[in-house]
Computed example of a mutant assay.
Amino acid sequence: MDPDLALILGLVLVVLSIPSMVAALSDGHAPRVAAITLIAGGAMVVWAIATKPGGYTIHEVPDTFIKVVGRYLA
């Protein structure tokens, strides 16, 4: 898997797990699925940063997102 794709998928998973975790906690349930999703997304982000030579800066993330979306939608 391409490190850019792993970074973007990981960030999307992390962002989507947060509302799920809040909903589970507000209902009084254990956020098991949200926690697993958060861990998986975090692992993908860490793998992408470790795999790409030089890593990523915070300023590269939006450009990387646009590049990945454009690559798979075009």
Rank of each mutant, 00 (worst) to 15 (best):
R32P: 04
L73T: 11
S20V: 10
T57S: 05
P53V: 08
P31C: 05
A35H: 14
S17V: 11
I49W: 09
T64C: 03
G10H: 00
D2V: 04
S26D: 15
I36S: 06
I8W: 07
H59I: 09
P31T: 06
T57Q: 10
H59W: 12
L73C: 07
A35M: 14
I18R: 12
A35Y: 12
V61R: 00
A74M: 13
V61H: 05
D27T: 10
T37S: 10
T37R: 13
A35E: 14
V12A: 15
L16K: 06
F65W: 01
V69W: 06
L16H: 07
L38V: 03
G70E: 14
L11A: 03
K67M: 04
V22M: 13
W47C: 08
V14D: 08
S17I: 07
I66Y: 12
K67I: 03
H59G: 09
P31E: 10
D63V: 10
T64M: 05
A43L: 14
A50S: 05
L13M: 14
P3F: 03
A40N: 01
E60R: 07
H59A: 11
Y72C: 02
A30C: 06
A30R: 11
A34E: 11
H29M: 13
I66V: 15
A74E: 13
G54E: 01
G42A: 04
T37H: 06
R71I: 02
R71S: 04
A43C: 07
S20I: 09
M44K: 03
I8E: 09
L7H: 06
W47N: 11
P62M: 05
L5P: 08
V45C: 02
A23T: 14
Y56K: 01
V15E: 12
A48C: 05
L9C: 11
V69I: 09
T37P: 03
L25V: 06
L25M: 10
G54W: 00
L73F: 10
I36W: 12
V45K: 02
V15R: 06
V68G: 03
L38M: 02
P3S: 01
P62F: 08
V15K: 05
S20M: 15
I39T: 14
L73M: 13
I36F: 11
L25N: 11
P31N: 10
V61G: 01
K67Q: 10
G28T: 01
M1F: 13
A50P: 00
A40P: 02
L13R: 10
V15M: 06
L13D: 10
G70C: 12
I18D: 11
K52G: 09
L25C: 03
L25F: 08
P62T: 03
V45R: 00
D63I: 06
A30L: 10
R32Y: 15
Y56T: 01
Y72M: 11
V12T: 15
L11H: 03
V15W: 02
P31H: 08
A40L: 11
G10C: 00
S17P: 12
